[in-house]
């Protein structure tokens, strides 16, 4: 386990070494504030309601997380440092988990930096903190799932730009599958399609948790997708040795 943490903290720090972390956090906070105060017309509603912010999170994470994961495995392949990494006395799962936690750590920091939004709401009015905490939990679970998907996609590419496209495509597939618009189109085809998309996709489950309804099945679904793609990533590393 200590190797996992050593790798995770190195990955976390190296985001900050390359300024990527600052840009990521700045974009994340800016988009969230715009979504909340400007497009969400927070001041117009006259209520201490921060649901515009949470409604924007699935899209913000979907756009920004692939920018973090693209540099992981693809960059190691590009630089050749994957050779050193894979000849360290570490199991494949330790490497994958280390990279996952390092990246998720940065997502968590970015989420923490948006704390100004609920704090403003609490200062102006009477904010119900239960749904806020649930919303952050949902965002972290969703972020984790995107990181796992993005890392897996990144492991198939040698160039970071292709890894970005690959990560974004895979994350969008899961992220947008149960978007209300998509479900609307699917309802023209069949009811089964709607229920399958609604089950597999991330959006509906995020909605539920963010409203404060923490259903064990929703949490378990995010965790399973995350674990599944981390496992695929480990398999991918083993496949590399055979290539």
């Amino acid at each position: 386990m200590s190797r996992v943490l050593v790798l995770a903290s190195k990955e976390f720090k190296s985001y900050f070494n390359s300024w990527l972390a600052y840009v990521f956090i700045a974009c994340f906070v800016t988009v969230s504030m715009l979504a909340h105060f400007y497009w969400g017309e927070f001041f117009g509603t006259g209520r201490a309601d921060i649901s515009p912010f949470f409604r924007s999170l699935p899209l913000t994470l979907l756009i920004l997380v692939p920018g973090l994961t693209m540099r992981q495995w693809a960059r190691e392949s590009e630089m050749g440092s994957i050779e050193l990494l894979m000849t360290l006395p570490a199991q494949g799962w330790q490497l994958v988990l280390g990279k996952f936690l390092g990246t998720l750590g940065l997502v968590a920091v970015a989420l923490l930096c948006t704390a100004g939004i609920p704090l403003t709401a609490a200062w102006l009015g009477d904010l119900d903190w239960g749904p806020v905490l649930a919303g952050y939990l949902a965002a972290l679970l969703l972020g984790g799932a995107y990181v796992a998907l993005g890392l897996f996609a990144s492991s198939w590419f040698r160039e970071q730009f292709l890894a970005l496209i690959g990560s974004a495509a895979l994350c969008s597939l899961f992220g947008l599958m149960s978007w209300p618009k998509v479900l609307g189109w699917a309802s023209n085809i069949s009811e089964t399609a709607v229920s399958v998309l609604g089950f597999v996709g991330f959006y509906g489950r995020f909605e539920a948790i963010q409203r404060g309804v923490i259903d064990f099945r929703d949490v378990a679904w995010y965790l399973s997708i995350t674990a599944l793609f981390l496992f695929f990533n480990v398999c991918r590393l083993h496949l590399r040795r055979l290539a």
Partner: peptide, 12 residues
């Protein structure tokens, strides 16, 4: 092990 390309993270 010293690989041929001697990869070292440039930002560290």
């Amino acid at each position: 092990y010293l690989p041929e390309s001697n990869p070292i993270y440039p930002e560290m």
